[in-house]
Design a protein around this nucleic acid. Structure first.
Length: 260
DNA sequence: ATGGTCGACTCTCGA
């Protein structure tokens, strides 16, 4: 059995009690975290060691930050794309490694702010760079997991009132096309394989009152896997329970299980 | 219902 989970923490230091409970309950073989919002000197490394987890991370002050934690050996650690275009920020948004022979790519894709904003072009370019990364440095026949906060609802099933989100940076046609182009390299949306039904959301904006109850959410946290892993997948879940345990945060854990 | 809050950090930003 191999379990991978992804969670946008929106400050790892504010969510340690949630992560502790999740590790105790689920004991994921790989936990991919985004928006840790902490510089490396202040990263709660000791917390993970207490849970008997190894951890790799890179962050910056106030924004971004990614980490991968695992009870197993974490090998071949790389930050960023290493494509010659890496800005400082990219190193705190993309973290890659290998665990038990599986290549793991954990990404916190730039949100984009507004379709007119230059940040949106950076976001679209990010997906181009990811596509190139997979084409040049990975082999789709091998076991690979690309997961994280993609800041994209890929289809109209993945957001409430999609007809009103056409100009939203997480649903705009260009961003969906850019994301699906990376997926087309050789990935399967393993969550969707197990849950074709609507209203499966991983993110609820806490500014909207009663968003969970009213099902006003988005599915923007994804786990994509190559065929060889998809064939061994047993189940996938959105662990909403852990969101209800915390002070309003926005994202929750998404998890996939494999018979390995 | 087109809302409003949280976290980090400065006196506001990003989501």
């Amino acid at each position: 059995m191999f379990t991978i989970a992804t969670y946008n923490t929106n400050s790892i230091r504010a969510r340690l009690h949630i992560i502790k409970k999740y590790i105790e309950d689920i004991h994921p073989d790989c936990l991919c975290l985004q928006e840790t919002k902490v510089v490396d000197e202040q990263f709660p490394k000791e917390f993970f060691l207490e849970q008997k987890y190894n951890v790799i991370f890179k962050g910056q002050k106030a924004y971004n930050g990614v980490a991968i934690a695992s009870p197993h050996k974490i090998e071949d650690v790389i930050f960023g794309f290493e494509d010659g275009e890496d800005r400082e920020e990219d190193l705190t948004r993309l973290i890659r490694c290998k665990i038990k022979g599986i290549s793991i790519i954990n990404s916190y894709v730039p949100q984009g702010r507004d379709i007119e904003h230059e940040q949106y072009q950076i976001k679209l370019n990010w997906f181009k760079r990811l596509k190139r990364l997979f084409e040049q440095k990975y082999k789709k026949e091998l076991p690979i997991i690309w997961c994280g906060d993609m800041n994209v609802a890929p289809t109209e099933l993945d957001v409430y009132e999609p007809e009103k989100k056409l100009d939203h940076v997480c649903f705009h046609e260009a961003v969906r096309r850019a994301f699906l182009d990376v997926v087309s390299w050789g990935f399967i949306d393993i969550f969707r394989k197990f849950h074709p039904e609507p209203e499966q959301f991983s993110f609820f904006d806490y500014r909207i009152r009663g968003a969970v109850k009213r099902k006003l959410g988005w599915r923007i946290d994804h786990i994509l896997v190559t065929k060889n892993l998809a064939d061994k997948a047993i189940d996938a879940k959105i662990d909403l329970k852990y969101r209800l345990l915390q002070k309003p945060s926005d994202h929750t854990f998404v998890r996939a299980l494999f018979d390995l």
